[in-house]
Protein backbone atom coordinates (compact mmCIF):
# COMPACT_ATOMS: atom_id res chain seq x y z
CA UNK A 1 0.00 0.00 0.00
CA UNK A 2 1.76 3.09 -1.15
CA UNK A 3 -1.04 5.41 -0.14
CA UNK A 4 -0.99 6.37 3.49
CA UNK A 5 -4.61 5.56 4.27
CA UNK A 6 -5.67 4.39 7.72
CA UNK A 7 -5.58 0.61 8.04
CA UNK A 8 -8.38 -1.56 9.43
CA UNK A 9 -9.84 -1.97 11.96
CA UNK A 10 -11.47 1.44 11.91
CA UNK A 11 -13.15 1.15 15.28
CA UNK A 12 -11.61 0.47 18.67
CA UNK A 13 -12.74 -1.05 21.94
CA UNK A 14 -11.82 2.10 23.86
CA UNK A 15 -9.38 0.25 26.08
CA UNK A 16 -6.21 2.17 26.86
CA UNK A 17 -3.06 1.79 28.90
CA UNK A 18 -3.94 4.71 31.18
CA UNK A 19 -7.46 3.36 31.82
CA UNK A 20 -5.96 -0.01 32.73
CA UNK A 21 -3.46 1.60 35.09
CA UNK A 22 -6.25 3.65 36.64
CA UNK A 23 -8.15 0.44 37.36
CA UNK A 24 -5.07 -1.07 38.98
CA UNK A 25 -4.62 2.05 41.12
CA UNK A 26 -8.26 1.90 42.19
CA UNK A 27 -7.89 -1.77 43.09
CA UNK A 28 -4.74 -1.05 45.10
CA UNK A 29 -6.64 1.45 47.24
CA UNK A 30 -8.27 -1.48 49.06
CA UNK A 31 -5.07 -3.01 50.50
CA UNK A 32 -3.71 0.50 51.08
CA UNK A 33 -6.78 1.42 53.10
CA UNK A 34 -6.40 -1.73 55.16
CA UNK A 35 -2.74 -0.86 55.77
CA UNK A 36 -3.64 2.64 56.93
CA UNK A 37 -6.30 1.30 59.27
CA UNK A 38 -3.95 -1.29 60.77
CA UNK A 39 -0.69 0.67 60.86
CA UNK A 40 -1.84 4.29 61.01
CA UNK A 41 -1.26 7.41 58.99
CA UNK A 42 2.44 6.68 58.48
CA UNK A 43 1.46 3.92 56.06
CA UNK A 44 -0.35 6.48 53.92
CA UNK A 45 2.62 8.82 53.95
CA UNK A 46 4.97 6.01 52.89
CA UNK A 47 2.63 5.30 49.97
CA UNK A 48 2.50 8.98 49.00
CA UNK A 49 6.30 9.21 49.16
CA UNK A 50 6.94 6.16 46.97
CA UNK A 51 4.26 7.13 44.48
CA UNK A 52 5.45 10.72 44.23
CA UNK A 53 9.08 9.59 43.90
CA UNK A 54 8.20 7.13 41.14
CA UNK A 55 6.15 9.68 39.20
CA UNK A 56 8.80 12.39 39.60
CA UNK A 57 11.57 10.01 38.51
CA UNK A 58 9.78 9.06 35.28
CA UNK A 59 8.72 12.64 34.50
CA UNK A 60 12.29 13.82 35.00
CA UNK A 61 13.72 10.97 32.92
CA UNK A 62 11.50 11.84 29.99
CA UNK A 63 12.14 15.57 30.36
CA UNK A 64 15.93 15.29 30.63
CA UNK A 65 16.21 12.87 27.71
CA UNK A 66 13.65 14.86 25.71
CA UNK A 67 11.51 11.77 25.19
CA UNK A 68 7.78 11.63 24.79
CA UNK A 69 6.36 12.25 28.28
CA UNK A 70 5.08 8.86 29.41
CA UNK A 71 4.35 9.60 33.05
CA UNK A 72 0.67 10.16 32.22
CA UNK A 73 0.21 6.47 31.33
CA UNK A 74 0.04 5.85 35.08
CA UNK A 75 2.46 2.95 35.21
CA UNK A 76 4.97 4.84 37.37
CA UNK A 77 2.25 5.59 39.92
CA UNK A 78 1.31 1.90 39.99
CA UNK A 79 4.95 0.92 40.57
CA UNK A 80 5.30 3.44 43.39
CA UNK A 81 2.12 2.40 45.13
CA UNK A 82 2.85 -1.32 44.74
CA UNK A 83 6.29 -0.84 46.27
CA UNK A 84 4.81 0.92 49.29
CA UNK A 85 2.42 -1.97 49.86
CA UNK A 86 5.36 -4.35 50.16
CA UNK A 87 7.19 -2.23 52.77
CA UNK A 88 6.69 -2.02 56.54
CA UNK A 89 5.00 1.21 57.63
CA UNK A 90 8.06 1.96 59.75
CA UNK A 91 10.46 2.17 56.79
CA UNK A 92 12.36 5.49 56.65
CA UNK A 93 10.83 7.72 53.96
CA UNK A 94 14.10 8.33 52.14
CA UNK A 95 14.75 4.63 51.84
CA UNK A 96 11.28 4.07 50.44
CA UNK A 97 11.82 6.91 47.98
CA UNK A 98 15.16 5.46 46.91
CA UNK A 99 13.56 2.10 46.21
CA UNK A 100 10.93 3.82 44.11
CA UNK A 101 13.42 5.79 42.05
CA UNK A 102 15.50 2.65 41.46
CA UNK A 103 12.41 0.73 40.40
CA UNK A 104 11.39 3.30 37.82
CA UNK A 105 14.74 4.50 36.50
CA UNK A 106 16.90 1.40 36.57
CA UNK A 107 14.45 -1.47 36.35
CA UNK A 108 12.03 0.13 33.88
CA UNK A 109 13.37 3.18 32.04
CA UNK A 110 16.88 1.85 31.41
CA UNK A 111 15.39 -1.26 29.86
CA UNK A 112 13.45 0.87 27.39
CA UNK A 113 10.41 1.99 29.31
CA UNK A 114 6.99 0.47 29.81
CA UNK A 115 6.69 -2.94 28.18
CA UNK A 116 10.42 -3.49 27.79
CA UNK A 117 11.42 -4.28 31.36
CA UNK A 118 12.19 -7.87 32.30
CA UNK A 119 11.66 -7.61 36.04
CA UNK A 120 8.71 -6.35 38.01
CA UNK A 121 9.90 -2.84 38.97
CA UNK A 122 8.20 -2.70 42.37
CA UNK A 123 9.58 -6.06 43.47
CA UNK A 124 13.04 -5.26 42.12
CA UNK A 125 12.89 -2.02 44.12
CA UNK A 126 11.98 -4.00 47.19
CA UNK A 127 14.80 -6.47 46.53
CA UNK A 128 17.27 -3.57 46.42
CA UNK A 129 16.00 -2.23 49.74
CA UNK A 130 16.30 -5.67 51.32
CA UNK A 131 19.90 -5.75 50.17
CA UNK A 132 20.77 -2.23 51.34
CA UNK A 133 18.66 -1.84 54.46
CA UNK A 134 17.70 -5.28 55.74
CA UNK A 135 17.01 -3.97 59.23
CA UNK A 136 14.36 -1.56 57.90
CA UNK A 137 12.57 -4.25 55.99
CA UNK A 138 12.38 -7.10 58.44
CA UNK A 139 11.30 -5.14 61.50
CA UNK A 140 7.58 -4.73 61.77
CA UNK A 141 5.58 -2.61 64.13
CA UNK A 142 2.71 -4.30 65.90
CA UNK A 143 -0.71 -3.45 64.48
CA UNK A 144 -2.22 -0.41 66.13
CA UNK A 145 1.11 0.92 67.45
CA UNK A 146 1.35 4.67 67.14
CA UNK A 147 4.14 5.21 64.61
CA UNK A 148 5.62 8.73 64.63
CA UNK A 149 4.94 10.52 61.34
CA UNK A 150 8.29 12.28 61.28
CA UNK A 151 11.78 11.48 62.49
CA UNK A 152 13.34 8.07 63.00
CA UNK A 153 11.03 5.29 63.98
CA UNK A 154 12.38 3.49 66.98
CA UNK A 155 10.14 0.49 67.21
CA UNK A 156 10.22 -2.65 69.18
CA UNK A 157 9.96 -5.15 66.39
CA UNK A 158 6.98 -7.39 66.75
CA UNK A 159 6.91 -10.89 65.48
CA UNK A 160 4.85 -11.60 62.35
CA UNK A 161 3.04 -14.86 61.66
CA UNK A 162 5.73 -15.67 59.10
CA UNK A 163 8.45 -15.32 61.74
CA UNK A 164 6.64 -17.80 63.94
CA UNK A 165 6.39 -20.22 61.07
CA UNK A 166 10.17 -20.31 60.66
CA UNK A 167 10.41 -22.02 64.07
CA UNK A 168 8.41 -23.92 62.71
CA UNK A 169 5.26 -23.36 64.65
CA UNK A 170 1.74 -22.20 63.97
CA UNK A 171 1.45 -18.45 64.66
CA UNK A 172 -0.35 -16.99 67.66
CA UNK A 173 -2.57 -14.86 65.44
CA UNK A 174 -5.97 -16.34 64.65
CA UNK A 175 -7.07 -17.10 61.10
CA UNK A 176 -9.62 -14.30 61.41
CA UNK A 177 -6.82 -11.87 62.17
CA UNK A 178 -4.89 -13.22 59.18
CA UNK A 179 -7.88 -12.59 56.95
CA UNK A 180 -8.56 -9.09 58.25
CA UNK A 181 -4.90 -8.17 58.45
CA UNK A 182 -4.64 -7.11 62.10
CA UNK A 183 -1.20 -8.66 62.29
CA UNK A 184 2.37 -7.50 61.92
CA UNK A 185 3.60 -7.20 58.33
CA UNK A 186 3.93 -4.97 55.32
CA UNK A 187 1.46 -2.17 54.58
CA UNK A 188 -0.54 -3.90 51.88
CA UNK A 189 0.20 -7.54 52.53
CA UNK A 190 -1.54 -8.34 55.78
CA UNK A 191 -5.22 -8.07 54.91
CA UNK A 192 -6.30 -10.92 52.65
CA UNK A 193 -9.83 -9.55 52.58
CA UNK A 194 -8.71 -6.16 51.27
CA UNK A 195 -6.48 -7.78 48.65
CA UNK A 196 -9.36 -9.96 47.48
CA UNK A 197 -11.64 -6.92 47.22
CA UNK A 198 -9.07 -5.23 44.99
CA UNK A 199 -8.56 -8.41 43.00
CA UNK A 200 -12.29 -8.87 42.53
CA UNK A 201 -12.48 -5.37 41.09
CA UNK A 202 -9.73 -6.18 38.58
CA UNK A 203 -11.41 -9.46 37.64
CA UNK A 204 -14.76 -7.77 37.09
CA UNK A 205 -13.14 -5.04 35.02
CA UNK A 206 -11.41 -7.68 32.94
CA UNK A 207 -7.98 -6.28 33.76
CA UNK A 208 -6.61 -9.57 35.05
CA UNK A 209 -7.51 -13.20 34.46
CA UNK A 210 -7.56 -15.63 37.39
CA UNK A 211 -5.22 -18.13 35.72
CA UNK A 212 -1.87 -17.01 37.19
CA UNK A 213 -3.11 -16.20 40.74
CA UNK A 214 -4.99 -19.48 41.05
CA UNK A 215 -2.04 -21.50 39.75
CA UNK A 216 0.22 -19.69 42.20
CA UNK A 217 -2.04 -19.92 45.26
CA UNK A 218 -3.04 -23.49 44.42
CA UNK A 219 0.60 -24.57 44.25
CA UNK A 220 1.45 -22.90 47.56
CA UNK A 221 -1.60 -24.54 49.13
CA UNK A 222 -0.81 -28.02 47.82
CA UNK A 223 2.89 -27.90 48.67
CA UNK A 224 2.39 -26.58 52.19
CA UNK A 225 -0.30 -29.18 52.76
CA UNK A 226 1.91 -32.01 51.56
CA UNK A 227 5.09 -30.71 53.19
CA UNK A 228 3.40 -29.39 56.28
CA UNK A 229 5.55 -28.32 59.21
CA UNK A 230 2.71 -27.79 61.62
CA UNK A 231 0.74 -30.17 63.75
CA UNK A 232 -2.32 -29.59 61.63
CA UNK A 233 -1.51 -29.60 57.89
CA UNK A 234 -4.69 -27.74 56.92
CA UNK A 235 -4.01 -24.94 59.40
CA UNK A 236 -0.39 -24.81 58.28
CA UNK A 237 -1.54 -24.49 54.69
CA UNK A 238 -4.01 -21.70 55.48
CA UNK A 239 -1.43 -19.72 57.43
CA UNK A 240 1.06 -20.20 54.60
CA UNK A 241 -1.33 -18.85 51.99
CA UNK A 242 -2.59 -15.94 54.10
CA UNK A 243 0.74 -15.00 55.71
CA UNK A 244 3.40 -12.77 54.19
CA UNK A 245 3.23 -11.48 50.66
CA UNK A 246 1.69 -14.42 48.82
CA UNK A 247 -1.78 -12.94 48.41
CA UNK A 248 -0.60 -9.51 47.27
CA UNK A 249 1.95 -11.05 44.93
CA UNK A 250 -0.49 -13.55 43.47
CA UNK A 251 -3.08 -10.95 42.52
CA UNK A 252 -0.97 -7.85 41.88
CA UNK A 253 2.65 -8.87 41.19
CA UNK A 254 2.48 -12.16 39.32
CA UNK A 255 -0.27 -10.69 37.14
CA UNK A 256 1.89 -7.73 36.07
CA UNK A 257 1.37 -7.72 32.30
CA UNK A 258 4.86 -6.77 31.25
CA UNK A 259 6.70 -9.38 33.28
CA UNK A 260 4.33 -12.35 32.97
CA UNK A 261 3.60 -14.66 30.02
CA UNK A 262 0.76 -13.96 27.58
CA UNK A 263 -0.17 -17.50 26.57
CA UNK A 264 -2.42 -19.71 28.71
CA UNK A 265 -0.13 -22.72 29.12
CA UNK A 266 2.88 -20.53 29.92
CA UNK A 267 0.80 -18.60 32.44
CA UNK A 268 -0.09 -21.75 34.34
CA UNK A 269 3.50 -22.98 34.43
CA UNK A 270 4.58 -19.50 35.52
CA UNK A 271 2.11 -19.45 38.42
CA UNK A 272 2.97 -22.96 39.53
CA UNK A 273 6.71 -22.23 39.40
CA UNK A 274 6.37 -19.07 41.50
CA UNK A 275 4.35 -21.04 44.03
CA UNK A 276 6.96 -23.80 44.22
CA UNK A 277 9.82 -21.31 44.49
CA UNK A 278 7.99 -19.34 47.19
CA UNK A 279 7.58 -22.41 49.38
CA UNK A 280 11.14 -23.55 48.68
CA UNK A 281 12.63 -20.16 49.58
CA UNK A 282 10.50 -19.87 52.69
CA UNK A 283 11.57 -23.30 53.91
CA UNK A 284 15.25 -22.98 53.09
CA UNK A 285 16.12 -19.29 52.70
CA UNK A 286 17.64 -16.82 55.10
CA UNK A 287 14.49 -14.70 55.23
CA UNK A 288 11.13 -16.01 56.40
CA UNK A 289 9.60 -14.71 53.16
CA UNK A 290 10.48 -15.83 49.62
CA UNK A 291 7.82 -14.22 47.46
CA UNK A 292 9.93 -11.36 46.10
CA UNK A 293 12.72 -13.55 44.78
CA UNK A 294 10.34 -16.24 43.56
CA UNK A 295 8.53 -13.74 41.34
CA UNK A 296 11.72 -12.05 40.15
CA UNK A 297 13.28 -15.38 39.20
CA UNK A 298 10.26 -16.37 37.17
CA UNK A 299 10.19 -12.91 35.54
CA UNK A 300 13.50 -13.86 34.00
CA UNK A 301 12.01 -17.08 32.65
CA UNK A 302 9.01 -15.53 30.89
CA UNK A 303 10.56 -15.36 27.43
CA UNK A 304 11.72 -18.97 27.66
CA UNK A 305 8.29 -20.10 28.85
CA UNK A 306 6.51 -18.38 25.97
CA UNK A 307 8.92 -19.92 23.49
CA UNK A 308 8.65 -23.38 24.98
CA UNK A 309 4.86 -23.29 25.27
CA UNK A 310 3.38 -21.77 22.11
CA UNK A 311 -0.32 -21.97 21.46
CA UNK A 312 -1.74 -24.90 19.58
CA UNK A 313 -1.72 -23.91 15.95
CA UNK A 314 -5.21 -23.50 14.53
CA UNK A 315 -6.29 -26.70 12.83
CA UNK A 316 -3.46 -28.74 14.35
CA UNK A 317 -3.90 -31.76 16.64
CA UNK A 318 -6.34 -33.72 14.56
CA UNK A 319 -9.19 -31.26 14.83
CA UNK A 320 -9.37 -31.05 11.06
CA UNK A 321 -10.46 -34.67 10.90
CA UNK A 322 -13.93 -35.18 9.56
CA UNK A 323 -16.54 -35.21 12.25
Amino acid sequence: MSRNLPCSPHIHSGASISKTMRDVLIALLAPLAAGVIVFGLRALIVALVTTAAAVAAEALWCAVLRRRQTVTDGSAAVTGLLLALTLPASVPYWQAALGSVFAVLVVKCLFGGLGQNIFNPALAGRALLMLLFPSSLVRFAAPGSELPLTGPVDIVSSSTPLHDMVMPALPDASLTQMLLGTIGGCIGETSAVAILIGAAYLLVRGVIAPRIPLAYLGTVAVLTLVFSRGQDPVQWMLYSVLGGGVMLAAWFMATDYVTSPVTPAAQIVYGVAIGALTVFLRYTGLYPEGVTYAVLMMNAAVWALERALPRRRYGAAGKEARA
Binding site: P6, P9, H10, I11, I17, S75, L114, G115, Y257
Partner: peptide, 12 residues
Protein backbone atom coordinates in the same frame (compact mmCIF):
# COMPACT_ATOMS: atom_id res chain seq x y z
CA UNK B 1 -12.84 6.43 13.57
CA UNK B 2 -9.98 4.71 15.38
CA UNK B 3 -6.55 6.32 15.40
CA UNK B 4 -4.21 3.38 15.71
CA UNK B 5 -0.94 5.17 16.25
CA UNK B 6 0.34 3.64 19.49
CA UNK B 7 3.92 2.52 19.95
CA UNK B 8 3.93 0.89 23.39
CA UNK B 9 3.02 -2.75 24.00
CA UNK B 10 2.70 -3.57 27.67
CA UNK B 11 2.06 -7.23 26.96
CA UNK B 12 -1.44 -7.31 28.41
Amino acid sequence: AAQLDGTVCFRC
